[in-house]
Write a protein that binds this DNA or RNA. Structure first.
Lengths: 224, 224
DNA sequence: TCAAAAGTGTTAGATTTACACCCATGA
DNA sequence: TCATGGGTGTAAATCTAACACTTTTGA
């Protein structure tokens, strides 16, 4: 009989806010809840934390299960612990956000799980406190994007400067001046111009850039 | 038999990083652990989350128990969930930081609990992952202090500009130019100069200031 | 009389913002 | 030929950082 056993245990789950960027909009992956309580409601995807796994691993496992993807950028948003947050039982949930390139995510898998990419500005009412989680995640992600080069996780390996600008505009919900933006990009040597040209989004074509992580770690000084 | 019961529950605790400011140093309240495992090790103060209380209330309760104080500024740091973080059992802990004025905290209570104010730069090795919690809390608090007027929670209601400057220096670990600092303070009308003079810390005496929260909410624009 | 902390402005440099036109191409 | 998105530089304004001396008073 230990000291611990005087206290009660609770269920702990993780919920994933999966961000994507498409059609110049910041999107979140949500689905219809498959179980009671709340069956049929829009919801984030989550899962229970097992006895032998860390919170981080539980979040990773959940994401991998859903997307088939590994080594995805994830960060903890925080713990949500109101007593009645879950209408069924007392469950404490730890939210994580993840950044993926929507192109890396198979449509097949998306449909299998019945998930949808929804504009973050047009989110429906979600199950439990999931809206709150998304807003907090967005806020943290936005902040992190200003000081660390994590935005590239939402883009293909090769991207145009306009794409990058639209991403920052979508995340920050504000227009950015094209010339000022490009000026700042040019100062960051780890954002490398390639000789490749994208002809999809314009007639003239636009140079494709890539983020060089190794160069970043050496040069390292980011600010947008 | 519900869906929930297929999964296992875990113990959840809260740990408090209590910040204080004294002798121009940022301090953290720590004590010797009174129970096994880890009896006698330096540790943060924490407690288990009960079945019928939210995480926030558990943190508040823990803090009140320890300090006798209510309505203290607290913010969540995050959830710490490595499987073996606690040497005894699997416990997930959610850390919170609190800002108090050391003068408001009774010496008597401090001694009863065997707690010590320790400079954040001279922390000993703490129990479990508590050092990590403190560092994370410090980082978050530092960041928040730049954009929100929360520093006043660490000072008496009346304070001198030098005290305020020393506080920012201690939290940010960097010297600040006196004239530039005072210039910025003068622009914030919610930091009000009183006619009172503090004669304790200097022969000449220094004007005492106070933070006017109401004025802040109306005027509201803070940046240090 | 002197040590110790309080108080006070100016200037150069760096950063940020605003702003408008030509280019290349496919339809 | 024209509509669409790509690409480029400069100047004004703002913000930031550096810097030194006088005041007051208790010991």
């Amino acid at each position: 009989m230990t000291y611990y056993s005087e206290h009660s245990k609770v269920w702990v789950s993780v919920d994933c806010i999966i961000f994507g960027f498409d059609e110049n909009k910041l999107k979140v992956l949500i689905g219809r809840r498959q179980m009671d309580p709340g069956r049929g409601e829009w919801s984030l995807y989550g899962g229970f934390v097992a006895a032998d796994e860390s919170l981080d691993s539980a979040a990773e496992r959940t994401l991998t299960e859903l997307t088939g993807m590994n080594h995805v950028f994830m960060r903890q948003v925080g713990a949500f612990g109101n007593v009645d947050r879950d209408p069924g039982e007392r469950v404490i949930s730890v939210a994580y956000y993840a950044l993926i390139d929507v192109k890396d995510y198979s449509e097949k898998l998306r449909r299998e799980y019945g998930l949808e990419w929804v504009n973050i500005n047009e989110l429906p009412r979600l199950y439990s406190d999931h809206n709150e989680m998304v807003m907090k995640a967005w806020q943290l992600m936005k902040q992190k994007m200003r000081t660390e080069p994590i935005g590239f996780r939402l883009l293909p390996q090769l991207f145009t400067l306009t794409q990058l600008q639209r991403l920052y505009e979508a995340v920050g919900c504000e227009e950015i001046d094209k010339r000022n933006f490009r000026k700042r990009i040019k100062e960051m040597d780890f954002i490398e111009k390639t000789e490749l040209i994208d002809k999809l989004s314009s007639k003239r074509g636009a140079y494709l850039y890539r983020f060089n992580n190794k160069a970043f770690r050496e040069d390292s000084n980011f600010k947008l």
